[in-house]
């Protein structure tokens, strides 16, 4: 239930000629099936643009994206997306949001309900199934969004700074939940973040992007046990190593 993603020579330029601003420059990368890959970089490095291209929301200026060998031409249900702004459908209840995908595929109502119940249980929101999104806190909304993406059984999940708008405590709790869910589901996940701690905590590999135009600077493989300890010395070592690299980049931009 997980797929391989290949990015081949992606370029992306915004604006019309004359004022063209390159956002991505020659990004090639292979995401293995079942791995959680973090895209890390300062704001404006093009990491969200990269994710939007994989999602099929934006076409690349050059290059292409392959999912299990098939080129991406637009959004599709095999690539679930979790947005930073949650983007729940405000007119649907929590449960109806989660079963939105299966309903579109025409699954019988009974089955949709069962799927929604299962994923709401997974994110710990069974009791809030009948509420509307306005009645939820930010952390709860993002849990619903994750359940909605997973309930559609995608082979790839794309997450665009999903915990960026949450407070520090909620953020850590949701990181732990995501890592627990991933140990069960083994999806291919591309996760965009600007938090080094978050990347080291979640990722199998961390891709550090350069700024303006975005290109890959370095790829770290995080060899840490599945259930990670944020205070272990190895954890801190990865953190400081990546921090040094990113600081160089920020300093370079400010020169």
């Amino acid at each position: 239930m997980s797929a391989r993603v290949q990015l081949e020579g992606l370029h992306k330029t915004f604006g019309v000629d004359g004022h063209a601003a390159p956002a991505l420059s020659d990004v090639s990368l292979e995401v293995h099936a079942g791995e959680l890959l973090c895209l890390l970089g300062p704001s404006g490095c093009g990491k969200s643009t990269l994710l939007n291209i994989v999602a099929g929301f934006l076409p690349p200026t050059r290059g292409r994206v392959l999912v299990d060998g098939a080129p991406v031409t637009g959004p599709g249900p095999e690539r679930g997306v979790v947005f930073q702004e949650y983007v729940l459908f405000p007119w649907l209840t929590v449960a109806q949001n989660v079963e939105f995908g299966p309903r579109l595929q025409g699954a019988p109502a009974e089955r949709c309900r069962a799927i929604a119940a299962r994923y709401l249980h997974m994110v710990g929101l069974s009791e809030h199934a009948a509420k509307f999104p306005v009645q939820l806190s930010g952390g709860m909304k993002q849990r619903v969004a994750i359940a909605r993406a997973l309930a559609n059984s995608p082979s790839i999940v794309l997450m665009d700074e999903p915990f960026g708008a949450l407070d520090a405590q909620t953020r850590e709790v949701l990181q732990e939940e995501l890592s627990r869910i991933q140990r069960v589901e083994h999806k291919t996940i591309i996760f965009v973040t600007h938090s080094i701690r978050e990347a080291v905590y979640l990722a199998d590999r961390v891709v550090v992007l350069n700024r303006a135009p975005g290109r890959i600077k370095e790829i770290f493989t995080i060899k840490l046990p599945e259930a990670r300890d944020r205070f272990a010395p190895e954890f801190t070592r990865y953190e400081s190593e990546i921090t040094r690299l990113v600081k160089e980049e920020v300093a370079r931009v400010h020169e």
Binding site: P75, G76, P77, V81, E85, V87, F89, G101, L104, R148
Partner: peptide, 18 residues
């Protein structure tokens, strides 16, 4: 209508009439 809502629905597999 917020384009993000359309993106979210499209990535859940919604077609034009949906």
């Amino acid at each position: 209508v917020d384009p993000l809502l359309l993106r979210a629905a499209a990535s859940l597999g919604a077609r034009r009439p949906q």
